[in-house]
Design a protein around this nucleic acid. Structure first.
Lengths: 232, 232
DNA sequence: CTGCTTACTTGATATTTATCAAGCGGGCAT
DNA sequence: ATGCCCGCTTGATAAATATCAAGTAAGCAG
């Protein structure tokens, strides 16, 4: 296991529990590719021929309808994307494009399905991963249906703040227009929302965020682990 | 297999591929319970001790936050709910209540996880089911972020119309207030939305819906399999 | 049958969010 | 360094959606 191909991939929860032999089999048809920024990787509706593992960079999973577009989620390394389509041998529901220069390992879907049947450890890891993905999207749905855009932003900021260990200030890890799309609002509205949060102790300077009064912001945002926690 | 306990459960995709022996093991700790209408089954945040299988009736999976409430999905028989929480041994993300008198088989979560490791057919079925659930929620998210409430209603009607085989008229299978909540709007707005769709060939009379001009409605709704199809 | 409850509808209004149109300002290529 | 592109901001306005307040009608219990 120490000298496996793509060690970053091997150490992911999804691939950590399988036998060396099966991991090697899975990687036999896999290849690493490096993409420049802002390159289309996948178009929604295409067949899911590969499971993708983002090793470095960042990928935007988005969707279009009727001339509108929205970011459904942002993938940060190291993690997989479009596992569900791979498993079901179905079409991609989202398009994908790189946001920065990205290195991606592509594993043929048929191999993923074959190894799933051979390796119980992998099977268990797949199901645990998929369940986590499912729960994450349910949280997104609750966030969208139960909260206003301002409340979503407030909770996003608190969530990042907490993830970074509650520092005095931190930088947004997304461009504001990207963030707006993820949160389900327009860039103009995000701008105004940031301003509105000044009243709750949020200071914004470019991409630097300062939460000067966490208690006040929390009182407004009312975060809950059943929506805002990445883990549970 | 012909005389298994809970034959309706056994014939679900999720349980159809496992051995008789393992199915029997899984059902050893399971029990069928009948609930009256409008009874709370589960509160969000509670531990997921049971996988639930709805055998008859209907169940509303909903969530509350800050004094607001929304239906995330409606479960119709025969199908399971909260598989993901069961798999991850996590807390429920949604509350559940019966809408009508309902019969529900409850299977201890620990048994589900144990049999998953024993039975490859069951493991495969679980992962396929979870992947389908995931994709379904992704579609919901796209529906919410890319469409207005009026567009969501139009597509919902077309989708039901198609599912029933494009009849001259059909009845809504949800109360309007329920439907409003599922579609992410208020009952008042749903009422007005129905009126607005008259212009596109939709006639509403109580719970009876007539789509007098499907082509016109489709031109407005622009349905796509990547959002509106239950299967793919 | 009568009266009650409850869902639904309708109208008026407020809030939230999007759109359109400038303007500002930082980063990057020439 | 200069100028240009692009993302961000701001203001004005429009559209979408929610809220509040009655009113209507259908179903059900007495």
């Amino acid at each position: 296991m120490s000298d496996s191909t793509f060690p970053e991939v091997r150490s992911l929860d999804l691939f950590a529990d399988m036998s060396d032999e099966n991991y090697a089999k899975l990687m036999r048809g896999a290849y690493l590719q490096t993409f420049p920024p802002h390159v289309d990787l996948i178009g929604e509706g295409e067949g899911a021929d590969f499971l993708h593992v983002l090793v470095s960079g960042a990928v935007d999973l988005f969707s279009r309808w009727n001339n509108r577009e929205t970011s459904v989620m942002i993938v940060k390394p190291v993690s997989t994307f479009i596992l569900a389509a791979t498993i079901r041998d179905a079409r991609y529901l989202m398009s994908a494009r790189t946001m920065e220069k990205s290195r991606i390992v592509m594993i043929p879907s048929q191999d993923v399905r074959a190894i799933f049947d051979l390796d119980a450890g992998f099977a268990r890891a797949v199901v645990v991963e998929l369940a986590a993905c499912y729960r994450s999207v349910i949280k997104t749905t609750k966030n969208l249906k139960l909260r206003t855009a301002l409340e979503r932003l407030a909770n996003y900021l608190l969530s990042r703040h907490r993830a970074y260990g509650a520092p005095a200030s931190f930088d947004l890890d997304l461009e504001k227009r990207q963030l707006a799309s993820v949160l389900g609002m327009t860039p103009e509205n995000l701008s105004r929302a940031f301003k509105a949060l000044q009243a709750y102790g949020v200071a914004v300077n470019g991409e630097k965020i300062e939460i000067t009064n966490p208690a006040l912001l929390q009182k407004f945002a009312k975060p809950t682990s059943l929506i805002d926690d990445d883990q549970t």
